[in-house]
Design a protein around this nucleic acid. Structure first.
Lengths: 343, 343
DNA sequence: TTGAAAGCGGTACCAG
DNA sequence: CTGGTACCGCTTTCAA
């Protein structure tokens, strides 16, 4: 890579000092420093001619700020996370910040590696959607100790700024809705990378099942991985139970789509024979067949809110721990219906 | 943000010089420089105690290399691009490089902004999946001029390293396959951000239609945006034509899923009344109802190949322009079938 | 109105 | 074996 032109080169070509170039590049010509119109033009020409571009790292080193915030996502294969990323990026861009996106692929080692890499880069703030929060309290404390604003997404870590969502309420609504439709045997497909993630939905599932006096037992809970493939297999297992569940609550739309397929291949019609409800309301949820009943949360807003929290803390590090709540909403579509008449 | 500990702090605490700390941190203790086991331990302890982390930017500034390569993606809402990103990230990680992901949201201004931002960061290499190549020859030339390895994904820019895919062949296969099934009126849903993108598929569509003597006319070509919503509406328009097409080639799976929905809502069964074939083979393609007939290309491999090209050029800038071809494969599933008997 | 110079945090050469 | 020190490119006082 050929050496890029530096401020020095520009200064020499324009016949001025480096300081002058810096002033002009940073637009200080109006405010503090006054520079001849003519000098300014000469410098601008030189910049143009050389194709000079300021060296962001050198600048950061001097200024002590990178204008970058990091976003740690657990799984790029789930559209739900992209929506979060989109929102975060948008909010960051609006403030002139860059977003450094890191995908940890649900791998705890990569997660640690990523947090360290980001820390070494001295990013100005960090938004975390951790897969294995329990393994990372150390990291987080170290970051917090360095006064790097950290925001946790979709989870609650004590003493840390959080963006929480209404999936707990959503789970309650789903369950109540299914019960109201007459379903008694409701299964849960719990496809997550770590027991912690999405556990609130499992807990609520359990509680509602007990409260309503439905058939209990881990029998109707099917843990699995995070891919459609895993969801497909889990649905197969769950639907082979006897008596078979008449409704399924699935941890997210991605797996729900796979569950629909599993049902179809077993000769079950959705929603006539089997109701399926899930979470996220990804863009495709309303376009697949049948359109999914799902719990929507404004994922982009989650991303935006997280970044806003980072900025807020950047501005006032002494702020008490903030908490933003993004409510959820049950969207009823065609994948759910009345429980089939008992055979 | 409290000042982080520096090399200097470590050196002071360990009672050694900064140079020594640097040696140890960089693991030069075995090779060039020799350092007492004891000194080493003292320094390591100091590092631990202070929570010292090397300042990546300062390091980059000195070394002139960032160990980062940039990846410019046009649209994070299309799973296809995520697969590419996953592959690229994996390959980069394996080589100890970080991937700086930038999403341009199909917006040409953002694209320019992003290329500049990356350039200012002095990233070591760049993988571009440009939406508006025609508007960026300048940028690319500027980058190339700076000897920053640039790899173009899914397009051919003369004199630049490229990773091309088999979507041209794939389009031919799709068309031949549909014709062989007896389809004569084949529509095209061409949902792209720029006329340039995916144009190879449109051209081939035209050519095959003419060669086979099928009903011609732009009537069966429906350009639209990149969202499922846009694909849905385009399908509605296309299926309202009279005579109605009996088969649809859709630019990607995301829109194909929406097209299936549009058909369903018009009372058309897929594949009995309407065949639909598309491109990408995203993960969900085999799980939606009906499973999609689609042209698969190994997207992760595209990402990996692109990053490999960057490394190759980093190693030998004088290399002649490289070209990697990722072949495609027609995956026949249930969304296509024999043409319906004419009414 | 412009320029000289002191760092920001590391690295690596050269001397001891 | 270890330390002193000259940069990397840029910002920003302070003087001229």
């Amino acid at each position: 890579m050929r050496k890029q032109p530096t401020q020095e080169d520009v200064a020499r070509l324009a016949g001025v000092s480096r300081a002058t170039v810096s002033y002009i590049v940073n637009g200080l010509t109006d405010g503090r420093v006054a520079i001849t119109e003519e000098t300014q033009q000469r410098v601008l020409d030189a910049i143009e001619k050389l194709g000079y571009e300021p060296h962001a790292m050198a600048r950061s080193l001097r200024l002590g700020t990178t204008h970058t915030i990091g976003l740690l996502l657990p799984d790029m294969r789930n559209p739900h996370y992209w929506q979060i990323a989109c929102g975060a990026e948008q909010q960051a861009q609006d403030a002139g910040y860059d977003l450094l996106l890191v995908n940890t692929s649900l791998d705890p080692d990569k997660e640690i590696h990523a947090v360290n890499a980001l820390s070494r880069r001295r990013i100005d703030g960090l938004v975390l959607l951790l897969t294995f929060p329990e393994r990372h309290t150390q990291e987080i404390e170290r970051l917090a100790d360095k006064r790097v604003p950290v925001v946790a997404l979709g989870g609650r870590i004590p003493g840390v700024d959080c963006v929480d969502n209404g999936y707990r309420d959503g789970a309650v609504h789903v369950m109540e809705y299914l019960i109201q439709l007459g379903h008694r045997r409701i299964g849960l497909i719990h496809g997550v990378a770590s027991e912690m993630l999405g556990q609130e939905r499992r807990l609520i599932y359990r509680r509602v099942v007990q409260t309503a006096g439905l058939p209990v037992g881990a029998d109707y809970i099917e843990p699995c991985g995070t891919t459609p493939e895993a969801g497909y297999l889990a649905a197969q297992r769950l639907l082979s139970r006897s008596p078979r569940p008449t409704a399924l609550m699935v941890i997210n739309d991605l797996l729900a789509i796979a569950a629909v397929r599993a049902a179809a291949e077993m000769g079950l019609r959705v929603p006539e024979d089997l109701s399926i409800a899930s979470f996220d309301d990804i863009e495709l949820a309303s376009y697949v067949t049948p359109p999914l009943t799902t719990v929507r949360v404004n994922a982009e807003e989650m991303g935006r809110a997280a970044v806003r929290l980072v900025f807020a803390r950047l501005q006032d590090p002494a702020l008490p721990p903030q908490q933003i709540y993004i409510p959820s909403e049950l969207i009823v579509r065609a994948s759910t219906g009345p429980a089939p008449v008992q055979t």
